[in-house]
Design a protein around this nucleic acid. Structure first.
Length: 733
DNA sequence: ACCTGAAATATTTTT
DNA sequence: TATTTCAGGT
């Protein structure tokens, strides 16, 4: 147990882990194993700390990489953490168990499926699947859509599950609750019978497994002696339970989070978990990271002032060694069109000074606000990329192909069967499908098995039999051909043989062109999957592929290389940073949003004060995304649901002290510091950070035609000639 | 099976 | 205003 000595022995090897860390960060990285809470303000290098702590545990404390589990919320964060640990320690030295709550739960449930009461090949339902399943069950239960919407049931079920409540544990007190519990029960039974597991279920099953099965619990607690969590403020009660169960009595947990960036309270996240951490894990050491490496002091001052209006937080104040910077700018537009035009103008004026489009971000509260910006940017030919909206793997055409794939390996999967049996149309309509279902349930067969029998039954209509035979043969044919094909080709032939591609080609709609592109993209994704994973390049990889796809809806990866203005909601912006940020729609009733100002009708959460505080945090998150310049814009008039409405300035604006905020006069072109071009000629002799090669010193400069070329001595990559690409450089103090 | 028009609905969404 | 969903007619 004497870690100190071991660390001393190895210290020389490992000192680079602590390179370029400030005192607080270092304190967190080297803290003795035990409960550690790092309250990490925006831009304070929390990921660095987490990554280096993992490295430190391994190198200094001699912990095996197999004994470490690191948990994140997004696959993106998990991937980043993994690759950064690998950068630090070398390929294959990173812990294997770095993943999301859901991804890790899934892995454990596959391993311990029997103890968890699951089939080994259970299918993961995404939220879309879940919703359509509930709708279907409601139809069977004769629940009228007028009275209750599927969405309500979905919320109810997920909320119950995340409170660790099964349907049997609920006792309805009135008619309304009776209906809800009945649907929940039916849903659970159906999932159980068909080996379906939704997102919440992944976590709940894991929690139940660890609670009930001592053997498994001890085995896992023994294996993962060190647990690390990112974005701890976003954990809900079940996720906390999950963590506690893995930690066991050892309590060697490192949690990193920022209660000021808790913006998912409406989904059950409990920022209180941060506050209660000490009480839950006795002997907690708390380290506060307050030095910010992202924004100017002015932006931080403004943001600090705003967030100070919230209580229930560890008081912390971000500071930076960076320069003061330009004041925060406020633009009061007459209407939302003008608001968008202002943003476009500022961007264009920046671009004319060779600032790349990708340095700008437009952040808003609601997706509906994107429209104006799309229009103006389109008109002004400003390249932009909107994040959010329907995810790649949620699109109909993609889900259809995935269902075909599933049917290839699991013919008895009724979900997949129903989805594709009549798409594209093959004359097996609702009547025919009803008949299959009847036949199946009366004989306790799957739809596939039922169909195989119906086909041989000569008392059944010829048309029906022929259509069904065709379908069965189609699936068999894809499977047979797939036996000798590469995985990519399996996907390709599924797309073509199924007739899905032909279907979209035959129609001449605008949207069908994108659909076909998406299908092609799916082929690429399949090829990439084989390259990135260590799965076989054959039809056998369908299962792991479907699993990955269900849990990792990540869109195309290296979009950030694209030179376009980044447009997204405040929620999606968390964790990102941009040189110039436009936080738009800073109006009362929009930010804070109306619906957060009064308690909502479902009785979900009535605490106005809590939700107002969350809106404020949202505003704070937006502000702290900005590195150099922050613009706040608002508009007196905007269209809401087809009606013109008048808007007053957001109350949050008053919370920004005057000296940090300047109002941009109407119709006056802004001309501020941020648009100053970083001139390559001024860089000679200075230290820079390169996006790819890291730190280096500029030792030479020459011009090749239009392009400046810098000679740079990199710390880790030797001397290189590098083309001046503004995007790739940051100047160090 | 497919089309059509009325009706309902519109905050945020890591998995 | 824009989009989706559903009932009802053909």
């Amino acid at each position: 147990m004497n870690y100190q000595n071991r660390s001393f022995e190895r210290l020389t090897d490992v000192s680079e882990i602590l390179d370029r860390l400030n005192d607080r960060q270092r304190e967190a990285v080297v803290a003795e194993p035990g409960p550690l809470l790092v309250t990490a303000g925006a831009g304070s290098g929390k990921t660095s700390v987490l990554v280096r702590r993992i490295a430190w545990l391994i190198k200094a404390f001699g912990v095996s990489k197999h004994q470490i589990m690191a948990v994140t919320f997004t696959n993106k964060a998990a991937r980043e953490m993994k690759s950064r640990v690998e950068d630090l320690l070398g390929m294959n030295e990173a812990p294997y168990r770095i993943g999301t709550f859901h991804g890790l739960s899934n892995s454990f449930l596959r391993i311990y499926h029997e103890a968890a009461g699951l089939e080994s090949d259970f299918t993961i339902l995404d939220s879309g699947d879940q919703k359509s399943l509930i709708s279907r069950l409601n139809r069977d239960l004769r629940i009228s859509v007028g009275e209750f919407k599927p969405q309500q049931f979905q919320n109810f079920i997920n909320r119950s599950k995340s409170n660790e409540l099964r349907a049997t544990a609920l006792s309805p007190r009135n008619y309304r609750e009776q209906i809800f519990v009945r649907v929940y029960e039916a849903y659970e039974n159906y999932c159980e019978a068909n080996s379906l597991v939704d997102f919440e279920e992944l976590l709940l099953r894991t929690v139940e497994l660890l609670k009930r099965n001592q053997l498994v619990r001890e085995e896992l607690q023994d294996r993962y002696q060190h647990v690390l969590v990112d974005e701890f403020q976003d954990t809900n009660s079940m996720q906390l339970e999950w963590l506690k169960l893995f930690c066991g009595k050892r309590n060697q947990i490192t949690a990193v989070g920022d209660e000021d960036q808790s913006i998912y309270g409406w989904r059950g996240a409990l920022a209180e978990n941060m506050i209660q951490f000490e009480a839950i894990f006795p002997g907690t050491r708390i380290v506060r990271l307050e030095q910010n490496y992202r924004s100017t002091q002015t932006i931080l001052n403004a943001a600090n002032a705003v967030i100070q209006h919230n209580d229930q937080r560890y008081s912390k104040e971000l500071w930076t060694e960076r320069k003061k910077g330009a004041s925060v700018k406020l633009f009061n537009a007459y209407d939302s069109g003008q608001e968008a035009k202002f943003v476009a103008e500022v961007i264009l004026s920046g671009v004319s000074r060779s600032i790349p489009y990708s340095n700008f971000a437009v952040l808003y509260r609601t997706n509906a606000q994107s429209r104006e910006f799309e229009e103006v940017f389109g008109y002004q030919q400003i390249p932009f990329r909107i994040y959010g909206g329907l995810r790649f793997y949620q699109r109909k055409e993609i889900k259809d192909i995935l269902a075909y794939l599933r049917l290839l390996v699991e013919p008895n999967n009724n979900e997949a069967f129903s989805r594709v049996v009549n798409f594209p149309r093959r004359g097996i309509g609702s009547v025919a499908q009803e008949r299959i279902a009847q036949y199946a349930s009366s004989r306790n067969l799957s739809y596939w098995q039922a169909s195989s029998e119906i086909v041989k039954d000569y008392s059944v209509q010829v048309h029906f039999r022929a259509a069904l035979t065709n379908f069965l043969e189609l699936i068999n044919r894809i499977r047979e051909e797939g036996e000798h094909e590469s995985f990519g080709d399996v996907i390709a032939s599924t797309i073509s043989i199924s007739g899905v591609k032909q279907f979209y080609k035959s129609r001449k709609l605008e949207s069908d062109i994108t659909r076909i592109e998406n299908l092609d993209e799916l082929e690429n994704a399949a090829v990439n999957f084989i390259r990135r994973s260590n799965c076989k390049d054959s039809i056998e990889s369908i299962r792991p592929f479907l699993d990955t796809v269900a849990l990792d809806s990540d869109d195309k990866h290296d979009e950030n290389t694209l030179n376009a203005v980044q447009v997204m909601t405040l929620h999606l912006a968390k964790g990102l940073e941009f040189p110039v940020v436009f936080l738009v729609g800073v109006d009362e009733n929009l930010l804070p949003h109306v619906l957060s100002l009064k308690s909502d009708q479902n009785g979900r959460r009535g605490a106005d004060k809590d939700s107002l505080a969350e809106e404020r945090r949202l505003f704070y998150v937006g502000m702290t995304r900005a590195e150099q310049q922050l613009f706040l814009t608002r508009s007196g008039i905007r269209m809401v649901r087809g009606r013109m409405s008048v808007f007053r300035p957001s109350r949050f604006l008053k919370e920004i002290p005057r000296q940090f905020l300047d109002t941009v006069p109407f119709n006056q072109k802004i001309d501020s510091d941020f648009t100053k071009k970083i001139n390559p000629d001024d860089l000679l002799g200075s230290t820079i950070d390169h996006r790819v090669f890291g730190r280096g010193c500029v030792t030479g400069l020459r011009h090749e035609g239009k392009f400046p070329v810098l000679t740079i001595d990199f710390d880790e990559h030797g001397t290189k000639q590098v083309l001046w690409e503004m995007n790739n450089f940051k100047v160090r103090r």
